[in-house]
Design a protein around this nucleic acid. Structure first.
Lengths: 226, 226
DNA sequence: ACCTGAACACCGTTCAAGT
DNA sequence: ACCTGAACACCGTTCAAGT
């Protein structure tokens, strides 16, 4: 609570503080703005001092991925598999929207951290507890994760913000000769440019399609397996 | 056919040649090795000369994405929707395995090129020609692309090569206390470490699950709408 | 023990200068 | 017209030196 705010930061540096600052920096300025030098600046420290708390930049990136994976809602004990899977999918998507850099960074990580293990374990546990065989739980996990990652990746690279769909469609129709791409034109006019269109709805469509399919396979397993 | 192979390259530089060399460089050494300086080296030219054929590095990346998107099999006229969708999914996955950097680069592109338009148009066309409504074709496109992108992203970051599954499972069991992650341990022992396990099978599982679901929705549309 | 200044080997990109 | 050398403003990272 001291009011002196000179250059020296009283709070000592720690791995935790470094990682938090890195997440904030990437959130605010994008991944390109997350450099060791600028991170040092933000913490009132020279870039070189960061290396006391982080082995190198790779280690820093591993650390911030672990933080954001920890923000995904885990299934609760006793929760039915279907609402549990929906909740984790929705919260994973929300996380990727809060941290647009996360997908990009996760793509370059090879060694998952403890938080990732905990996440995988909890999801598998919810499926197993609700009647899924080991094999079907593995299938379910992979296909749901594919949808989540793939949808978020598409959503992130949409050439328009959720808000200005009309503008982009218009400018796209200019750059895109209608006779050369007739089906793109059709879908733009009859679907995308219609009032109420929201690409986010595609997430629910895909999620329900997959959950319905999994429910069917689970029922069959339970019937046949005894 | 001249045999003199001095420093000067007889073939003049062109955008095409620059982009091809960039794809090769990224294939061989990963995205990190694709720098303007090293690309120049490979073409026996100073890095600065590349700027005659490419506006900047962003433009270069746009260009190589367009090239690899062009490697995805398009539906053929008259092809049934289901084999057409399967073929494009399989060939897209093969492309992402040939060019592991492509997913990463596509993620940072915002303006799709002509090849991407052509690809989207052909896929939508195959669905529309086979009875899908505009809305259902849009849904189908989004969910299939999500699966393809998301699966390839996962496959790329697998902490093991398709070959040495046993090794990795073993080393993972060490780093991963069995009692802390019981369901991960279970799936590792009873599923992943079983002979014949191949993560690639998850792709077919997801693909069939989604195609089955779409087939059902298409049938219902045709019954009700027609 | 913790932080720093200077240095190294890299980047993408510019611009005036060469042929 | 096409290519280049030198330079600029950046990177991540090292290491001996400071406190």
């Amino acid at each position: 609570m001291s009011t002196e705010s000179t250059k020296k930061s009283r709070v000592p540096l720690s791995r935790e503080r470094v990682l938090r600052a890195a997440v904030d920096l990437a959130d605010e300025g994008g991944l390109a703005s997350l450099t060791m030098r600028r991170l040092g600046e933000r913490l009132d420290v020279e870039a070189m001092s960061l290396y006391k708390h982080v082995a190198n930049k790779e280690d820093l990136l591993d650390g911030i991925v672990d933080i954001v994976v920890g923000e995904i809602d885990l299934p609760e004990p006793g929760e039915n598999w279907r609402p549990a899977m929906r909740r984790r999918a929705v919260s994973a998507r929300a996380m990727f929207r809060r941290h647009p850099w996360a997908l990009l960074v996760m793509e370059t990580r090879s060694t998952p951290g403890a938080t990732t293990f905990r996440y995988h374990d909890a999801v598998l546990g919810a499926l197993r507890a609700d009647g899924f065989s080991v094999a079907l739980a593995a299938h379910a996990f992979a296909v749901l994760d594919s949808l989540i990652f793939g949808f978020c990746l598409q959503e992130q690279n949409l050439p328009f913000d959720e808000s200005n769909v009309a503008e982009m469609a218009e400018s796209m129709m200019e750059a895109m000769p209608t006779d050369e791409y007739p089906h793109l034109a059709e879908i733009a006019i009859e679907h995308v440019m219609q009032p109420g269109y929201d690409f986010a709805n595609e997430f629910d469509f895909g999620l329900d399609l997959i959950l319905d399919g999994l429910a069917g396979l689970r029922d069959r397993e339970l019937r046949e397996g005894g």
